[in-house]
Design a protein around this nucleic acid. Structure first.
Lengths: 202, 202
DNA sequence: TCAATTTCTTATCTTTTGTTAACGTTTTGA
DNA sequence: TCAAAACGTTAACAAAAGATAAGAAATTGA
């Protein structure tokens, strides 16, 4: 896949949020970059500022933390989704999260400086404010549900809900990543799966 | 406190996000309403659409869910903070969260319709897009930290961190609310407190 | 291809948390 | 003011989860 194709995919996706005139799109594309990550390469690294806001044209990434030397996965993003260590990107402070490609992954990135330049550019400012608002609102809604799941549901209930709503995650991620994503250990998830399946067999 | 005083407080706070000219503030204030909630009155109710985005001029609220008939507190907001069932407000879908005043509370509210009107008003549109973006980004950053705390920390670690950063919550909320906010039961929080204090005494 | 690594399950044991109930204290509100 | 309700702690027991290790199966990558 070449950059031109990636930009077509990007534009199609972005138009869920804002539509661009030819002139606006021309100006916009001058601020983005097309990159690739090989499997296991990092998009963001803990203790550094994440200065890009990316869009996954193809591939997938996982978010993870190193806690007492252990690798703890907290989230995933797939093709046709954005990725960034958002707080770090917005506040220009070091992130605590690694973001790693799980396969050959193609991205289109907006750097922090490019984002600021677009916000200061009369041709793009209003659309970029709106775009930034709608994207932040979208992820806010996702986070609201996720926090509620930790407060109101048991690990088993969270897994049962994932079975209904998490096709990409379930089919494409190893179980020990999913376990940490649910806030439990891999051994515990294995037991939960056994608890759920056994009554069906009997 | 009267509405005029409340508006001064509101404007001072909002100017952390955007500044208003006299004309803009004039137009803006025509879209907001000043209201009061008595103790235990609700700002939002589960299974209904939350159609306001509020600012707490004074007082405080808690967010809670009813799970199997039990009251589970998930969050708090205090004076000089916004409050809303944000996802419900943005998506116009029923919320699953109750928001209840914990004391006599004064608010300034923006209704969903007022927000849309301001976004469509040439005088205010750009500032409101920016305001909406910055507010959403701010809460996104808070949520990012909170989700990370559930993935990477034990309940005891979350409580220890709250001891360092949660003065308002610790001083103004009963312990059983704090327990559910941390994702555990009140009995469990009582034990954690005992574990933490005992080594100090010995 | 084939050894190394990763992944998942299972078992054992420990620790933590949940559940329920009781008790004393504090707060509330009529 | 005073009874009722709310609050925090503790105990006892059950359930769940964490830690560690072992082993089998699947996957990987040189």
């Amino acid at each position: 896949m070449d950059a031109a194709t990636a930009l077509i995919i990007y534009r199609t996706y972005l138009e869920r949020y804002v539509t661009f005139s030819t002139e606006e799109w021309e100006a916009f594309t001058q601020h983005v970059t097309f990159t690739k990550l090989k499997k296991k390469q990092h998009f963001a690294t803990a203790d550094t500022v994440c200065d890009k806001f990316g869009f996954l044209v193809s591939g997938s990434v996982r978010y993870y933390h190193i806690i007492n030397g252990e690798d703890i996965t907290s989230y995933f993003s797939f093709e046709q989704e954005f990725t960034s260590s958002y707080k770090s990107f917005l506040t220009r402070t070091p992130t605590i999260t690694y973001i790693q490609a799980l396969e050959e992954t193609r991205l289109i990135n907006i750097s922090y400086d490019a984002f600021q330049q677009m916000l200061a550019n009369p041709i793009l400012a209003h659309k970029m404010e709106r775009f930034g608002r709608l994207v932040a609102e979208h992820y806010l809604c996702c986070y609201e549900d996720r926090v509620a799941s930790f407060i109101t549901q048991s690990p088993e209930e969270r897994y049962l809900q994932l079975l209904q709503t998490g096709r990409d995650i379930l089919q494409r991620m190893p179980q020990h990543y999913i376990a940490h994503f649910l806030g439990i250990t891999p051994v515990s998830l294995s037991r939960i799966r056994k608890r759920i399946l056994e009554p069906v067999i009997k």
